[in-house]
Design a protein around this nucleic acid. Structure first.
Length: 482
RNA sequence: CGGGGCGUAGCGCAGCCUGGUAGCGCACCUGCCUUGGGCGCAGGGGGUCGCCGGUUCGAAUCCGGCCGCCCCGACCA
């Protein structure tokens, strides 16, 4: 019974004590993932994978609804293909894993384990595109990729990770730009409405853009420790890859032109983002829309509860399931208090307690994970009421996260003020920026903060750069980031 | 790649300094008892002490080497 005020869960480091350890504790204790024998690689356990599957479904539906189709490109890429786009190679070569042997023999040409698929996709698109009628190509793939990382953390950065990567080809720059922004909106919508995680949409600086892209856009979120996390990126590749891979088409005006490309992706990192956005000292808190179980039913009773209470609990479970609610019934031989703590740790949005007293009153007791409120709910019309409550939890989580983010977003008008605000763990600091890489780098040296992005729709600032006296070119959001 | 820490039961750790039959808590198994916030009692199973070598009558412990993992910083989703 230690930690009574902290929510009854032991073996989790309090967030205030060590956020990073708290995160690792939650991942382990909630059985989301486990370390594998290979450094930097993790096993995504069933509960963690179920969350990913729900995120995946939400994305997949939307990606298809915007006209894209899924396909699959191979894991191995001949080394020479990766080297076709100069900036791209330079960006990725330190992180690439190679296959040197196969079938007991050394390979004539080493194979790259894809760190991303632009090279192989570009190679294929060159074969598939002849004329303007072949465009656009709108392909997405769900895949694993490998990037040899020096520092890894479960979900946030692992050597191998799962993601979705879209690769499109268009006739004009206007189309590729529209596509890039359309996907950025799609990502933001999924993060906000499904993950209940507010994000800032914006453009990356030159130094932070994708290797080989013309422009990179990102969505940025603020985690519970006030550090920023890049939650997704969408790149307008311009004609860079088309030129490197010779993807040409005959245009409407009979001229031969290079296609305009885009690529965009989100990863299993989103699972980590959800943990760090909503979790508390008792463990995970899952937004209902991605909770593998939205409701857990816990039967309560004396030694004969299996006879007296369980049938009613089963009936309730069946009723909720029939109404399309993801529900589980915990009929293990454990004490109720133990089960409460266990399901709180796993972040189940609603716990439904049913005991003799409730049966008498023809009601159930519903406990909300987000607010810890306990509410008596009549058995009559239960499913409808539960759906309302799930919607309310979803909204509450988003509102809470947005209030947290807004509360930690400040504006700096002088460099002194900027540096002062960046002390400790401040969240976002908004400032005008001249656009020079030198200022960006100096800010990083002075404060450890990086330019997260330049939000879309910000008015062009009229004043001077927060760091130098040159005229400001853009409004930028800075933060210490993951 | 730099800095730090740690490898002893599934998990968390003690034992190491000062060598002498490997321990604690949780978890697990059996039984009883209990059940509206991680009950209680009794019994039980489980470890080549990261690996290799050395010193010694004897090494988890001392010495040398290696390997691995975690955390924090520079680079990246």
């Amino acid at each position: 019974m230690a930690n009574k005020h902290e929510g009854f869960v032991t073996e989790i480091t309090p967030r205030s004590e060590d956020f990073s350890q708290w995160y690792l504790d939650v991942v382990r204790r909630a059985e989301l993932a486990d370390y594998s024998p290979v450094k930097g690689c993790m096993v995504i356990r069933p509960y963690g994978y179920a969350i990913w599957e729900l995120i995946q479904q939400a994305l997949d539906v939307r990606i298809k609804a915007t006209g894209h189709v899924n396909a699959y490109f191979p894991l191995f890429i001949p080394e020479s293909l990766l080297h076709k786009e100069a900036e791209h190679v330079e960006g990725f070569s330190p992180q690439v894993a190679y296959v040197t042997h196969g079938g007991g023999e050394e390979l004539e040409e080493r194979l790259v384990v894809r760190p991303t698929s632009e090279a192989i996709v570009g190679t294929m698109y060159a074969k598939w595109v002849q004329g303007w009628r072949d465009l656009p190509i709108l392909i997405n793939q769900w895949a694993n990729v490998v990037r040899w990382e020096k520092v890894t953390r479960p979900f946030l950065r692992t050597t191998e990770f799962l993601w979705q990567e879209g690769h499109t080809a268009h006739e004009t720059e206007a189309e590729s730009e529209a596509e890039t922004l359309k996907i950025l909106d799609l990502y933001a919508e999924v993060c906000e409405t499904i993950l209940a995680m507010p994000v800032v949409k914006g453009r990356k600086s030159e130094s932070e853009k994708f290797a080989g892209a013309l422009r990179t856009y990102s969505i940025e979120a603020l985690m519970g420790d006030s550090r920023a996390l890049q939650a997704g990126t969408s790149h307008n590749l311009g004609q860079n890859f088309a030129k490197a891979f010779d993807i040409t088409f005959q245009a409407r005006d009979k001229s031969v032109q290079h296609v305009w490309g885009t690529s965009w992706g989100v990863t299993t990192r989103l699972v980590g983002a959800v943990i760090m956005t909503h979790g508390d000292d008792s463990g995970l808190i899952l937004p209902p829309l991605i909770a593998p179980y939205q409701v857990v039913v816990v039967p309560i009773g004396r030694d004969n509860w299996r006879e007296t209470v369980l049938p009613k609990a089963q009936e309730i479970k069946a009723g909720l399931a029939a109404a399309g609610i993801r529900v589980t019934l915990d009929e293990r031989d454990e004490r109720p208090g133990w089960k409460f703590a266990e399901w709180e740790l796993r972040g189940v949005p609603l716990r439904l307690e049913i005991g003799p007293r409730d049966i008498e009153k023809s009601q159930v007791l519903v406990a909300r994970r987000d607010t810890r409120e306990k509410i008596g709910v009549p058995m009559e019309g239960l499913a409808g009421r539960i759906k309302e409550l799930l919607g309310d939890v979803q909204r509450t989580l988003f509102d809470r996260a947005r209030a947290f983010r807004d509360d930690r977003t400040r504006r700096a008008s002088s460099y002194e003020e900027f540096k002062k605000l960046m002390e400790g763990r401040p969240g976002f600091v908004v400032a005008s920026w001249c656009g020079s890489a030198a200022c960006e780098a100096q800010i990083k040296t002075d404060t450890q903060a990086t330019l997260r992005n330049m939000p879309l729709g910000s008015a062009t600032p009229t004043g001077a750069c927060v760091r130098c006296d040159s005229p400001a070119a853009a409004e930028a959001w800075f933060a210490k980031a993951y």
